[in-house]
């Protein structure tokens, strides 16, 4: 694993991203490049703007200024239809799984397909796709359960299956291990690695869980005060003499 995967252009790029809520300047010029096949971890304390950054990335929030480029498309200027199409390239694992409570696991997984299956010209049967996705996370037997009947870890897996169902090339993880016990967290991390190996996806992971970062990261960006404070591999950062960096990794 090379430190800076230098193979040509980044698949995802953020330049000088700024976002504020009233007088609260959350992001003050954040930069990021995600290369193909890479697992990039963005770390930072709660409220440091990680979630805001990732939401700007998929167009759930509008940035005040800055450029966000995904596969050569500037998402800030895209129309709704084009944005929707681009979003099929991105899987998004939400912090609290965000499974639709009123739907069964099957319906949850079918949901992204209902608009995109034709557009993406997916040949496979909807059922086949759903079963395959569930098989990937090892939860085939839960297909007709409701989300309330699932444990936290199972929910996270189903959510992961849902994020993967359109076979995206980029996966965004928003705090994939929060709220889970360490063992389940480890299982999820293993799953993430397995998926990355199987499909060759690029991942952007947001977390404040150092263990998670250590296991999965190729590269880590430390987000402090709305800017990239430090950048490097886990080993590099853990050896850093900087006070802030040290404080972060000590936990």
């Amino acid at each position: 694993m090379n430190k800076y995967p230098s193979n040509n252009k980044p698949i995802l790029e953020i330049k000088n991203l700024k976002k504020s809520f009233g007088n609260n300047h959350v992001l003050k010029g954040f930069n990021l490049k995600l290369f193909e096949g890479e697992n990039l971890v963005v770390m930072g304390k709660s409220g440091s703007g990680k979630s805001v950054m990732i939401k700007c990335l998929v167009g759930l929030m509008e940035a005040d200024s800055g450029v966000i480029r995904i596969k050569e498309n500037d998402i800030t200027v895209l129309g709704q239809a084009e944005l929707d199409l681009l979003r099929t390239e991105i899987g998004f694992l939400f912090q609290g799984s965000a499974l639709y409570d009123s739907m069964t696991v099957r319906e949850n997984l079918e949901f992204p397909l209902r608009r995109h299956k034709k557009k993406l010209k997916m040949e496979e049967d909807t059922d086949t796709l759903v079963v395959e996705a569930l098989d990937n996370v090892g939860l085939k037997e839960a297909i007709d359960l409701m989300p309330v009947e699932l444990s936290g870890g199972m929910k996270r897996r189903v959510a992961l299956a849902r994020a993967l169902i359109l076979k995206p090339t980029i996966i965004l993880y928003d705090e994939p291990t929060t709220g889970l016990d360490p063992i389940t967290a480890k299982e999820i991390i293993q799953l993430m690695r397995g998926i990355q190996e199987k499909y060759g996806t690029s991942s952007l992971i947001i977390t404040h869980d150092v263990d998670c970062a250590r296991v999965i990261s190729n590269r880590i960006i430390l987000l402090v005060d709305g800017i990239n404070y430090a950048e490097g591999s886990y080993e590099e950062l853990i050896r850093s003499e900087d006070v802030n960096v040290k404080a972060f990794f000590k936990q």
């Binding site: 998929v58 929707d84 979003r87 939400f94 608009r115 995109h116």
Partner: peptide, 13 residues
């Protein structure tokens, strides 16, 4: 619980 965001990302308004 971000279900509305999830919908948006899934291409459903």
């Amino acid at each position: 619980t971000e279900q509305i965001d999830a919908m948006e990302v899934s291409g459903t308004n």
